[in-house]
Design a protein around this nucleic acid. Structure first.
Lengths: 158, 158
DNA sequence: TGGCTGAGTATGCTCAACGCAAGTCAGGTG
DNA sequence: CACCTGACTTGCGTTGAGCATACTCAGCCA
């Protein structure tokens, strides 16, 4: 059962999903390499050749994607200096980049559940308690909802 | 601050993220058209030309992606019959497809927040109460966590 | 029997994503 | 001062994603 489309949205043949936020998001992070670079950033990778090695892409692709992610505001390029080396740059998630955490974790868990029978190589848990975490769609403080528990409304400012 | 990588995972230069579930997931839904088709399925679109019109892709691309999504098990092709028409097929989300809801909603909300100052065209709310929903990463029944509140462990069968 | 419609298929093209290989460039080490 | 290393850049070829146009095919309708 799909989401409930409220009011004028109910007639799917009468409106177009123009300017969809998801489509805009995908223009930035819609490539596999961009997603995997972000995964690495969440894992704590910061340096160019770390990204290259761990994502398994070429330097050319890494350079291009990292530049795009910096321009889009998801990563910040900041100088650092190791003793006995010249100043270099590392790539660190901004608040905007950090906010993609639910997307990354949701994708991982979906993959674990449906593409490998619930047994992925890694597990994401609470750092404090060690409890497994899950990604949920819900109003604050309540149980999570499926599509049939959700409705889509036209957004009016206010 | 990134996630806490536990034990052997802490040395990022000593292991490779092989067989990552997210990478596998992206092999299926890693294209913009696949994602937008899924969005439409959540909105309630079921018919071929509905997908074509609303996603704004060509019939050729729609046919290819829909076939892939059916083969991957995210959509189910099921016969239906309108009075005075012959039997046709519609595309409906399977449980596996439904489980992608958090990914779609998370992307929408991220786009709303960071690409349009919190004012996207649509809003996802609880069908029952009308309250706005959000996507959260957390252990059941607790507050949501950011990257710094999460840890990554090697998964051992239990 | 000939058209109409919904659901595709077929063909041809462009551009983006990516890989491989080689070159550049700045600065620190021997 | 030559060399090395990390961080890229450049060039070239392949594959996949996407558009546009045209065509097919089944069955209902006149």
């Amino acid at each position: 059962m799909p989401m409930q489309m409220s009011g004028p949205l109910a007639a799917l043949d009468k409106w177009q999903p123009d300017g969809c936020s998801m489509a805009m998001a995908l223009d930035i992070i819609g490539t596999k390499s961009a997603m995997l670079l972000l995964r690495e950033a969440f894992y704590g990778t910061t340096r160019f050749d770390g990204f290259v090695r761990r994502v398994g892409i070429t330097e050319a692709v890494a350079a291009k994607r990292l530049k795009e992610l910096v321009e889009a505001g998801l990563l910040e390029k900041r100088p650092y200096q190791e003793p006995g080396s010249r100043t270099r740059y590392e790539y660190v998630l901004t608040e905007m980049g950090n906010a993609l955490l639910p997307v990354i974790v949701a994708l991982m868990q979906w993959g674990d559940t449906y593409l490998r029978d619930g047994e992925g190589p890694l597990r994401v848990v609470s750092a404090e308690t060690g409890e497994p975490v899950s990604v949920r769609v819900a109003p604050s403080g309540t149980d999570s909802l499926g599509p049939e528990g959700l409705a889509v409304r036209i957004n009016r400012k206010g």
